[in-house]
Design a binder for these strands. Structure first.
Lengths: 217, 217
DNA sequence: ATAAAAATTTAGACTAGCCTAAAAATAATT
DNA sequence: AATTATTTTTAGGCTAGTCTAAATTTTTAT
């Protein structure tokens, strides 16, 4: 059995490694969890002893197969609880994170499986993120340029095809970053430009060139 | 904010003091929580510093007004979650306790209030215990002899009017004790005897004299 | 290529919540 | 009423998870 603290480390390591594919630096973990770097190093060593991560001194950590599975099951609980909070308890999607952070550590497989049933086995949570199944399987995220994504759906920004500062500065202006939720409101055939809503703010209009360089899933 | 551990102490102190009305001995707390007596003494001193209990050395503790309120709100959460688990997730009434022990420590007033609404503001949990309202008010339990209680309802045994060993031995045989749940199946006018189900076991038949000496609520 | 800067780890210390063993206070028994 | 037994508290220690400060390793820049 893992402590809530250990579970939080695994979750953060998974989140950070899915962006980079690289080993996750202990400092990045510390920053994310808002704890001292020394504390993160310490815990990483403990997680390595438990074979949940592999730890190479001064290089960082990588989840082992077991660690990855555990992390996915925590994500599963988190996302199912978020769905419950929004769909059944009528919370807004921006109010549920802190509560789900607590609920995700409740230890009962039966509970989470029944919760999934109650909710009708949803595939994604209220933020559009996919919910792993009871085996921890997280469907591969088929990412694509925003330009090719479906109208009306919400898409999560996962990266950018163009890394030039000119493009990134434009994204900053539009308040678009990794993790932003973009809903496509309308597509205009004339120039392939599209109207989008970023994180439920007011609708803005972007060119096809911009849309082709934003990677979403 | 209270830690889950502190909350558990308050809950146990409330449970033990509602039986006795007396100060709760630290040893009784230790026994209930299955921890060493020294540990309970220690924590009681800490709770006293926080003004949640009053502690008189070698005598035991009593909940303060604040402590009592906090304990009631934990009971509220526990019982609402139990109701949710049984009514929405279709757990059996004997499967929910451990899970509710975890859920009761989730820190969000909004969550528990919305949960109450979702469940239709139930007055009792699946075990027949009353659910405190959002101000922590626990309706006074109007207890009465089982003989006067309503047919078909479930009643919780809270005490005995006759404390003779002969009577108590009979109750032992019937598997009736403090906390037993008795459902009255049928009353017989001929001799005022009644048919009851104890803790969902098979139906048994008891005399009016026995029924008059079992106090339920 | 080497020195300076940045990142990471080690060392030592703190708190919460637990323990055992010994001491002190209260209760029970003769 | 005094002695014995029981209950409760004190004293000292342990682990998990956190911290700061110092030492070490890696990276960056001259």
């Amino acid at each position: 059995m893992l402590s809530p603290t250990e579970e939080n480390y695994l979750k953060v390591i998974l989140a950070l490694s899915s962006k980079n594919e690289q080993a996750v630096h202990t400092n990045a973990i510390a920053a994310e969890l808002r704890i001292a770097a020394a504390t993160a190093t310490d815990m990483c060593k403990k997680l390595a002893v438990k074979k949940l991560v592999s730890h190479e001194k001064y290089k960082g950590v990588l989840l082992t197969k077991t660690g990855y599975l555990k992390a996915c099951l925590i994500i599963r609980k988190h996302r199912l609880w978020e769905t419950f909070l929004v769909e059944q308890l009528k919370f807004k999607w921006d109010e549920v994170h802190e509560i789900a952070e607590q609920l995700e550590h409740i230890d009962s497989e039966e509970l989470v499986n029944r919760l999934e049933l109650l909710l009708g086995s949803p595939k994604t949570d209220p933020h559009g993120d996919p919910i792993p199944d009871k085996n921890g399987y997280l469907p591969p995220s088929r990412s694509m340029p925003l330009a090719e994504a479906a109208t009306h759906d919400v898409h999560v920004v996962r990266g950018v095809a163009d890394q030039s500062s000119k493009f990134l500065q434009l994204l900053n202006k539009l308040n678009i970053g990794i993790g932003s939720r973009i809903r496509i409101m309308e597509k205009f055939d004339f120039d392939q430009s599209i109207a989008i809503k970023v994180d439920q703010q007011k609708t803005v209009h972007i060119s096809d060139q911009v849309a082709r360089n934003i990677i979403v899933k």
